[in-house]
């Protein structure tokens, strides 16, 4: 190992540490601020370690709005959306990957095209439709219209295509019905894909803001992101409370990320889970 390359190595490491500090600084400030007495939040120079540590910010912030209710709503929506997002695209993926029927290609291309259609573009007519269905301020309205995304269909088709058709044909010769084949052969073989899909759906559902904002005006049906936005919109909402609920909102995402880091980063690189 030459001396020069060691110098480069150390310089690179030092640079990375500086960058990491810059990226971490807001997160550290947020967590530390959420544990401070209000009058210390904006002290300059910044007090990084709260003293005293004021844990009660969390229960106080939590009860300042109806966050328990919001959390329940968020969880209901999350489980429903994850279920729908995993089940129906998998069925469709099996249909597209292992069956032939007239119009299949056109249908598939059309569905792929839908992945380019952001909610921002169709929110007005979608709101009108949901209103006509009588779904404003209801769970179906909150859950269904954004529950399936085209990427999931594409993703499942890719995975199911990679299953050797011989397995499926063998089962067909044995007289298995197609639904049995789906559940007993296809599903077990694409389990990793289903887990990835479920994780991505959970991340997206937990953080979805625009759609709940559009369909929900009844605070009883508000999800966590809406609840936070209500607290934020109060005149002079206490900063330490805002930070505390932000931490609560972000922590499950962080945990999912730590638990499935590789999976999430890989699919992020392929698809752009954000934005």
């Amino acid at each position: 190992m030459s001396e020069r390359s060691n110098v480069v190595r150390i310089a690179r490491f030092g640079l990375l540490c500086v960058f990491a500090a810059v990226m971490l600084f807001p997160m550290v400030w947020i967590v530390s601020g959420s544990l401070k007495p209000l009058e210390q939040v904006f002290l300059i120079p910044v007090k990084w370690i709260p003293d005293p540590v004021q844990w009660r910010n969390y229960p106080e912030a939590w009860t300042s709005e109806n966050f328990t209710r919001n959390l329940m709503n968020s969880l209901i929506v999350l489980f429903a959306q994850v279920g729908i997002q995993v089940f129906f695209p998998s069925l469709a993926g099996y249909g597209f990957a292992k069956h032939n029927f007239p119009g299949k290609e056109i249908m598939f291309v059309m569905i792929l095209g839908m992945s380019l259609l952001p909610l921002q573009i169709i929110m007005i007519p979608l709101f009108v439709i949901v209103k006509q269905l009588g779904w404003i301020n209801t769970y179906p309205g909150l859950i269904l219209p954004i529950s399936v995304n085209a990427f999931a269909v594409f993703f499942m088709r890719q995975f199911i295509s990679s299953i050797p058709t011989e397995y499926i044909d063998a089962a067909r010769v044995d007289g298995s019905g197609e639904l049995n084949i789906f559940f007993q052969i296809v599903v077990p073989m694409v389990k990793p894909a289903l887990v990835t899909l479920a994780l991505l759906a959970a991340l997206a559902s937990w953080d979805e803001f625009l759609w709940p904002l559009i369909v929900i005006s009844d605070q009883k049906l508000a999800t966590l992101p809406l609840g936070i936005s209500y607290l934020k919109s109060l005149y002079q909402a206490p900063a330490h409370w805002l930070l505390a609920v932000s931490v609560v909102m972000a922590t499950p995402l962080l945990l999912i990320f730590l638990f499935a880091q590789q999976r999430i980063i890989e699919s992020a690189a392929q698809t752009g889970i954000k934005g």
Binding site: L16, F19, A20, M23, L24, F25, P26, M27, W29, I30, G33, V41, F42, I44, V46, L203, W206, D207, F209, P225, I228, S229, K232, A239, L242, L243, V245, S246, V247, M249, A250, L253, L254, I256, F257, L258, Q261, I264, I265, A268, K274
Partner: peptide, 29 residues
């Protein structure tokens, strides 16, 4: 380092926007 740089992406957009409106205050950090 990869985790640290990627983490903000995964954290809630709503929560981070809320927290950043404090970070960006005139008397903010």
């Amino acid at each position: 380092f990869r985790s640290v740089f990627f983490t903000p992406t995964i954290l809630s957009a709503v929560a981070m926007a809320t927290a950043w409106s404090l970070l960006l205050r005139q008397n903010g950090p």
